[in-house]
Amino acid sequence: MPLKDWLAALVVICAWGVNFVMIKIGLSEVPPLLLGALRFTFVVFPAILFVKRPQLPWRIIILYGLTISLGQFVFLFTAMYVGMPAGLASLVLQSQAFFTVLIAALLLGEGVRRHNILGMGAAVLGLFLIQLGAAPGSMTLLGFLLTLLAALCWATGNIVVKHAGKVDMLGLVVWGALIPPLPFLALSWTLEGPQAIQASLSGITHVGILAVAYLALIATVIGYVLWGRLLSRHPASKVAPLSLAVPVLGLVSAAWLLGEQMALIQWAGGLVVMLGLAVNTFGPMLAALLRRARRA
């Protein structure tokens, strides 16, 4: 890849890695469902006035908005609100890669290969170790399970994008963001209550505003647009592995900025999950290298 694309990839990794810290900061001032409504309101307005709607059927845009935008962040924000640490959330959310493989096999008839199964097995073991090593009060089981549901929604959105074919990612991100604000606000009004909404909006500080702006503009618009452009310019086999750096930065930034700590067994679980992700991503390449070595 040319230097400008490597720099774009670095921006995406940093934007998505620090994203989890900013979510935690935002949740300190705004309840999760209201935070989701604010995030996507500022993604869609005023950008929708200047960005053309992608040449896709409305059902694709709506499905994208309901899965990657609404479903993923309803579960992720709530998970982090009820006790999922930011660093671990960045790691567990990467299970979307395995959910994507499974859904593609079920709905699109794509084969599940040996390296996919090995990667999934390693990831399941790693996630078990992460949950097993959770100290009382450091991570809730509910938060862990909700993060897995967020990963499932992300994976479902990946299938929607895959089914759509070549798309204008900026248009899809902006117009897909038109779907979540009202459902988020309705859920917030029903579950969090109008008093909590009023208190949060009236008491929000510049730190909370900065967190919302980061989530909307940096993590969503800039992150997804640059990532989509990288995928359109280069083979997925070269771009996809770069996402493995996101949970690493997520764990480091959470430890540095939020003071989050993990037990030794959780670090081991994290390494096993990363190994599973690497096997899932690089499996065909490793298999080819092994075949060449045997022939030699």
Rank of each mutant, 00 (worst) to 15 (best):
L129A: 11
L129F: 09
L129T: 06
L129M: 15
I130H: 10
I130R: 14
Q131A: 00
L132T: 14
L132S: 15
L132C: 12
A134H: 14
A134V: 07
G137K: 15
M139N: 09
M139A: 09
M139Q: 12
T140K: 13
L141S: 14
F144L: 08
F144K: 15
L146Y: 04
T147G: 01
L152S: 08
L152N: 05
L152C: 11
C153N: 05
W154E: 01
W154T: 08
T156P: 03
T156V: 08
G157F: 10
G157H: 12
I159A: 06
V160H: 11
K162N: 02
A164T: 02
V167N: 08
D168N: 13
M169V: 06
M169C: 04
M169G: 01
M169Y: 04
L170A: 04
V173M: 06
W175P: 03
G176E: 02
G176R: 14
A177K: 14
L178H: 10
L182R: 11
L182G: 06
L182D: 04
P183N: 04
F184I: 04
F184L: 02
F184A: 03
A186S: 05
L187M: 12
T190A: 15
T190I: 14
E192L: 10
G193P: 02
G193V: 07
G193N: 02
P194V: 03
Q195L: 12
Q195K: 14
I197T: 13
I197M: 14
Q198H: 15
S200C: 07
S200E: 01
S200H: 10
S202K: 15
G203R: 15
I204E: 04
T205Y: 03
T205G: 07
H206I: 14
H206S: 15
V207P: 10
V207F: 12
V207L: 15
V207T: 15
I209E: 00
A213V: 05
A213K: 11
Y214N: 04
A216S: 13
L217A: 03
I218P: 09
A219E: 01
A219K: 12
T220Y: 03
T220Q: 02
V221N: 12
Y224N: 14
Y224V: 01
L226D: 00
L226H: 00
W227T: 02
W227C: 07
L230Y: 00
L230P: 06
S232I: 09
S232C: 05
R233S: 07
H234E: 02
P235R: 15
P235Q: 12
S237L: 03
A240M: 12
P241G: 07
P241E: 04
S243C: 05
A245G: 02
A245K: 08
V246H: 11
V246N: 09
V248Y: 00
L249H: 11
L249S: 10
L249M: 13
G250I: 05
L251H: 05
V252A: 14
V252H: 07
V252Y: 07
S253N: 09
L257K: 13
G259A: 09
Q261V: 13
A263Q: 11
L264V: 14
I265T: 11
Q266S: 07
W267D: 03
A268Q: 06
G269W: 10
G270E: 02
G270S: 08
G270Q: 10
L271N: 04
V273W: 01
V273C: 00
M274T: 01
